[in-house]
């Protein structure tokens, strides 16, 4: 089945089995391996990307459902060598350890800050409820998102 979509500003068109999950299409066909898969039940959030500007879990979307959409993955966040302010904030606040949940965290943070540019700590914590991290205890991730909201201003 033909799927045509835009990923990180570039157009793509591929023939896929309908059962191909968007996460697998990004990883296996487009080699955008920054999008990770950490669970089977749409809980962990490691696969989070932006679809038409909104954070979604790409492991729970068929690639065919994404036909015609605009996708942004973690690879599309930095501007050349310059990190996106959210990425910068994660680095400055040690908001990552093993790095596996990080792309999903950054993409979810982008959604949070887009809808609420000045979130409180509790709003950030609530916003991150769909993303698991096993390394950081979320402490520095929450700080990173709060800091990112300052950087974006």
């Amino acid at each position: 089945m033909r799927v045509t979509l835009t990923v990180n500003g570039k157009p793509y068109s591929d023939d896929l089995e309908p059962r191909t999950l968007l996460a697998h299409y990004l990883r296996d066909t487009l080699n955008l391996t920054g999008t990770h898969v950490g669970c089977d039940t749409s809980n962990c959030g490691a696969c989070t990307i932006l679809m038409d500007g909104k954070a979604v879990k790409s492991c729970t979307i068929l690639a065919v459902q994404a036909d015609g959409s605009e996708i942004t993955t973690i690879e599309g966040m930095a501007n050349g060598g310059e990190l996106h302010p959210i990425q910068q904030a994660f680095k400055e606040n040690h908001g990552l350890q093993c790095g596996f949940c990080t792309p999903g965290m950054v993409m979810t943070a982008a959604d949070i800050l887009q809808n609420n540019p000045n979130p409180t700590e509790q709003e950030v914590r609530h916003g991150l409820e769909g993303n698991f991290c096993r390394c950081t205890g979320y402490h520095n991730i929450v700080k990173s998102v709060l800091h990112a909201s300052e950087l974006i201003k």
Partner: peptide, 9 residues
């Protein structure tokens, strides 16, 4: 319901 990502979809 769910979380930000689930509510978006």
């Amino acid at each position: 319901i769910g979380d930000v990502q689930v509510r978006n979809k």
